[in-house]
Design a binder for these strands. Structure first.
Length: 521
RNA sequence: GGCCCGUUCGUCUAAGGGUUAGGACACCACCCUUUCACGGUGGUGAUACGAGUUCGAAUCUCGUACGGGCUACCA
């Protein structure tokens, strides 16, 4: 028998964890980090990772959101073992399809005296919230009266109505909900994997609705029932759920027993520059908030994603992992495999972390540098093609990627950094050359063309040696000639070494571009 | 308002009673490079505040302040 509440990862139970998103829109940083940690935990302990779609609120259902979630997980490399798409022995994995199973648990709670039927209409509830109390009129929304033990006996429910009246209302199919009956005076405490012991007074928690009038469970009931039925051993979720944890713990106690309850881990939130990270922050501060592009089907509003911004998935999960976790050493670049091996809940921070886009870009840059040409090729090739750049020679693309990848932070940088290899620049930054341009230099380049035309070898070394020899003959400093040369080949003041560029461009094209420059002056 | 969680350089973090409080991003300077980067070297920069416990506190306790979350028939 293990000490379920005390040990951080008791392995007496098969590790089974779930990511349980609502299909209501794009997946933001915080959501992806939650899946990441869940996934890492599962893989580290050889457990199962499943995805359960929490679509109990039909009014919030958004077309395409579910597909988006799986696309995102696939891109991140966080493939579930069980889900709507992957199958599994504990389905269905969509809560709307499990609707039938919830009611019996709610009814059981009523039978055991832990819950009750409530027939209050929306109008009655509204009236209750704003009713005058001993403290005065609760006008402000955030001061409103909760449906709790102080008021439940004044409302219309199976606690206040005669039994036969309740039966009659139920028999007539009167709209009703089932609410948990929170004990008036109990302390509920549990050990969170991240925060340690946390406790709540039940008298301060309201009688949450468990089963809605449409027969669907609320999150509170569904999460407990499904975690039980799916044999979840460790339940990860965002910190925003902490305040309702006592409700869930009580439900576990009443329904299945605390010994069966998974261990909870409430992950800290990821903050934006001004507090809570919102999807608006993206547009406001110029960084993505969602994992991948998301277009709201109703408003057609596009929220940019890390993928489309040019992040590598390896970099994305790496930076997310380090936002609130570290291995204790000074290593910051981790492969997914290393993360699986080194991840530990003990080292997850309890404080929320503010997202820093500059650091995020640094991670991506590191990953681009680290990545081999082969693994970057398909992405880069698509990017170039989309920008109207064509390349007949596959070999050339390999060489170009190898040459410029160290100076690319985001994938689209490859376009700017390498377009001139595939297409002569449209405009040349002649202003950078003009002020110091003179006949001596003009003569130099004329001689250079002749030299290159006769040159048998064409590689960066011979190109450079010949360049310098002619400069020496003309008593010119090579340094003063390299900038003009760069402008001729590239169009601007950027790119790798000029002689390497010339090599890849080839003799003919190099000469062509020098000649073209003369016409521009 | 109430409840809960949190607080080390601007940002992410290390240090689990004894360190000149360490690293990374960003920033600055220098070197390398006669482009821009990469790289290298160095620098600026933090324990929110106040009490207590202790020979000794970033670390333990309490209070205050500040930040965040929740307070729906949403998750």
């Amino acid at each position: 028998m293990c000490l379920h509440q005390l040990s951080l990862h008791p392995m007496c139970k098969k590790v089974r964890v779930r990511f349980a998103p609502s299909p209501t829109g794009g997946l933001h940083l915080g959501g992806v980090r939650t899946v990441l940690y869940t996934y890492l935990f599962a893989k580290k302990y050889g457990g199962d990772f499943l995805v359960r779609i929490e679509d109990t609120d039909q009014s919030r259902y958004v077309q395409g959101a579910e597909e988006y979630i799986f696309d995102t997980l696939r891109w991140c490399g966080l493939e579930p073992d069980e889900s709507v798409q992957h199958g599994g022995a504990y389905g269905p994995y969509r809560q709307s399809e499990r609707k039938a199973s919830y009611r019996q648990y709610a009814e059981q709670l009523v039978k055991d005296g832990h819950a009750y039927y409530a027939f209050d209409t929306p109008e009655e509830l509204e009236k209750m919230r704003h009713a005058p109390t001993a403290i005065g009129v609760k006008s402000e929304q955030n001061h409103s009266q909760q449906y709790d033990h102080t008021i439940r006996m004044k409302m219309r429910n199976s606690l206040t109505l005669p039994a036969n009246e309740t039966q009659k209302l139920l028999a007539e199919n009167t709209k009703h909900v089932i609410r948990i009956k929170m004990p008036a005076n109990e302390t509920v405490s549990f050990t969170d994997m991240i925060r340690g012991e946390v406790s709540f007074e039940t008298s301060l928690v309201d009688d949450k609705v468990l089963l809605k009038a449409d027969g669907m469970p609320t999150y509170h009931l569904a999460v407990v029932v499904d975690d039980y039925l799916m044999k979840i051993s460790h339940a990860f979720r965002g910190e925003e759920w902490l305040p309702s944890a006592p409700v869930h713990i009580l439900l576990w106690k009443y329904l299945f027993g605390l010994n069966e309850m998974p261990q909870w881990a409430h992950l800290p939130l990821i903050l934006g520059p001004n507090g809570k990270l919102s999807k608006r922050d993206g547009a406001k501060y110029g960084f993505p908030v969602f994992a991948m592009n998301w277009t709201d089907p109703k408003t057609n509003e596009l929220i940019e994603g890390f993928k489309e911004k040019g992040f590598l998935p390896e970099a994305f999960i790496n930076l997310l992992a380090l936002l609130g976790w570290n291995d204790g050493g000074e290593q910051e670049i981790f492969t997914k495999q290393e993360l699986v091996e080194k991840f530990s809940m003990e080292r997850v921070h309890s404080a929320g972390a503010k997202f820093d886009y500059e650091k995020a870009k640094w991670f991506n840059h590191e990953w681009i540098k680290k990545s081999g040409v082969g693994s970057l090729k398909s992405e880069v090739s698509v990017l170039l093609t989309n920008n109207g750049l064509t390349f007949a020679d596959d070999n050339l693309l390999d060489k170009v990627i190898g040459l410029v990848k160290d100076r690319c932070t985001l994938l689209p940088d490859f376009v700017q950094q390498s377009s001139f290899f595939f297409k002569a620049p449209d405009t040349l930054d002649v202003d950078a050359v003009k002020p110091k341009w003179n006949d001596a230099k003009k003569l130099f380049f004329a001689q250079l063309i002749l030299n290159y035309e006769l040159s048998a070898d064409w590689n960066s070394h011979t190109i450079e040696n010949n360049f310098k020899e002619i400069a020496a003959v003309n008593e010119l400093k090579p340094g003063e000639l390299m900038l003009p040369f760069r402008i001729m080949l590239v169009g601007g003041k950027f790119g790798p070494g000029v002689f390497e560029i010339a090599e890849l461009l080839g003799k003919e094209e190099t000469i062509k571009r020098i000649s073209f420059f003369f016409k521009q002056l």
